[in-house]
Design a protein around this nucleic acid. Structure first.
Lengths: 340, 340
DNA sequence: GTGAAAGCGCTAACAG
DNA sequence: CTGTTAGCGCTTTCAC
């Protein structure tokens, strides 16, 4: 750490005031004359004084640091979300520190412990799949508020904010059905996760409403990343006749699928329909542009930050589960019959 | 912060030992019998004790926390790099906290200050463009070691690790020249940055070696992201005859260009050649696959982590500037004449 | 307004 | 091996 060893007493000496005056000045306390404060700040700056928040937090028994733990920053959607969240907290005057778990529960536990040991005031988490409250508890300081985004933590005692995935997937599926498709597949995601189940439920809801036989539909789970999705679709292609449309678990899966189809000489948006979920930036700057369920990341982030703030202030408030509406963005990948 | 108020004395009481024994046990000191340690750990666990690293760091006047400040996590390359860096530090037993600056110098200053106030042992930075040593200095605790990745900080007194961008771009350019192209463009990046200058220099080196007239070449700078690159190429297309190949500043720019060309009915890899730089995951899972200069992110991360570790141990060691070699990955986007 | 004094939770001698 | 003691740098009553 090799800390700058100049401390409050040093500043006090330089400014010709007492320790506590400096402390007050540093906090911009109204108890001090502006003039005094200025004198102190000037001395501090000249000496290269660095506030030791560690000591302050210790003494004050509180902090303004919130720990953000993200499951996968290499997924553009989560990166976008993380950045949005960070900005929300920053705007609220909090300092946020971030860490990536790479979908690894051990790593997640370690990070949670570390954040707590460093005195995080609260935790914002996009949990690793399958995280339960019991996984979390032993690694959290008692009383540290946690809010979860995107993925719900089993136990129902943790505030949770997510897009309405079910409605979103349903809309995407309906869009394909509206074009007359009846042989459809749901592609990507891990069946044991709630997110998968919700998205699949949305898919099935549209299928059933349209009275499509379950014999016509296909479900192809896979780890939701580009590479695995690509491998999965490649294998599926080798097994014979394809459905008319793929409703994908996420954009990243949809990209993998689109590429796999491409390698087999099939064009999404011409030979076959593909939809994604998340609506990341790439959807509109790749060819074919990808039809996707837009997630209002900024809104999600704002609600999440608000929830954490509220819980920080009142740890007894009822647990809130908030679903943010989504919007289907229709683009080329799913429009087999382009508008005239 | 609402901290768990159980502390070392509480654990000591529960375990029937003294404060210092607990402290030693927590550090797994060899001075204690295994049995004693176990007893202590058990008591700690039962009480839900959370180590207060804040207090420990204060007392010990050191920390194992390194602050990682990243310019843009929404750029997949930097996200990949950040994750690789994080893993390196974690493997070294350090705890890393991350923050995103969104290419904003004010935000960067704030983050640096915050990390220092929290007692970071060292800082790993992918600095905002144009960052100078003078920008950094006032916000750093005296003596905190900093190492910079990807972008060099003016002043030459900060360890620096980056890919050999000049050689990489030169190889990409040469690859196009080898296919007989003589009308080429360098696309993307901000001219006032060193990275741009280096990449352009690599480009020009190949051009000049081939004896191509400067009248045949074009330089089209732009903010290096998908959307802006796309807008820039669209405008360029409207202005008339295009070069035979685009050597792009980065993959993200290349994707923007490819998409822009596509909208104009031109296919990269068929009508025109495009190369990128960074070789992010998407290069191999989009159609056409993108020829790119591969950056060995893991190696870069490892060298950067090592550099920071070394400086942590010896603040007087000479400044090191390390360039990591790159490798051109030739794919579809640049092969106008596919191998027979 | 300002200063003196106590203590946040921990570590690190040092003596037993 | 264990206990005692004195702080790390800061905030915060409480007198002045």
């Amino acid at each position: 750490m090799n800390r700058n060893n100049i401390t409050i007493p040093d500043v006090a000496k330089a400014a010709g005031v007492s320790k506590s005056t400096v402390s007050l000045a540093l906090q911009d306390s109204p108890k001090l004359k502006t003039e005094t404060k200025k004198k102190v700040m000037k001395a501090a700056k000249e000496l290269g004084y660095v506030y030791n928040r560690t000591a302050a937090n210790l003494r004050r028994r509180s902090s303004e640091m919130i720990g953000m733990v993200i499951n996968d920053l290499t997924n553009p959607f989560f990166a976008e979300l993380a950045v949005a969240l960070e900005r929300c907290f920053t705007d609220l005057g909090l300092v946020v520190m971030m860490a990536n778990t790479s979908e690894d529960i051990k790593q997640q536990e370690k990070i949670l412990r570390t954040f707590c040991e460093h005195g995080a005031a609260g935790i914002l988490i996009c949990p690793v799949f399958g995280t339960t409250q019991d996984d979390l508890a032993p690694h959290l300081a008692k009383g540290v508020p946690v809010v979860s985004v995107m993925r719900q933590i089993d136990g129902d005692e943790i505030d949770f904010i997510a897009p309405d995935t079910e409605a979103g997937t349903e809309a995407a599926t309906q869009h394909l059905i509206d074009q007359g498709m009846t042989r459809l597949a749901f592609m990507g995601g891990l069946p044991e996760t709630k997110v998968f189940q919700h998205r699949l439920r949305g898919f099935m809801a549209a299928i059933d409403r349209a009275g499509i036989s379950h014999d016509h539909i296909e479900i192809l789970p896979c780890i939701p990343n580009r590479t695995v999705a690509n491998a999965t679709i490649a294998q599926r292609i080798s097994q014979g006749a394809l459905p008319q449309g793929f409703v994908c678990y996420s954009d990243v899966v949809a990209f993998g699928v689109t590429f796999g189809l491409d390698r087999a000489g099939l064009k999404a948006g011409r030979d076959i329909a593909v939809t994604g979920f998340d609506d990341i930036e790439a959807c509109t700057t790749l060819s074919p542009t990808l039809t996707s369920v837009h997630v209002f990341t900024d809104q999600l982030a704002k609600l999440a930050a608000d929830s954490l703030m509220k819980r920080l202030k009142d740890s007894n408030r009822p647990i809130s589960n908030q679903l943010v509406r989504t919007r289907l963005e229709i683009r080329e990948s799913s429009r087999l019959i382009p508008p005239a």
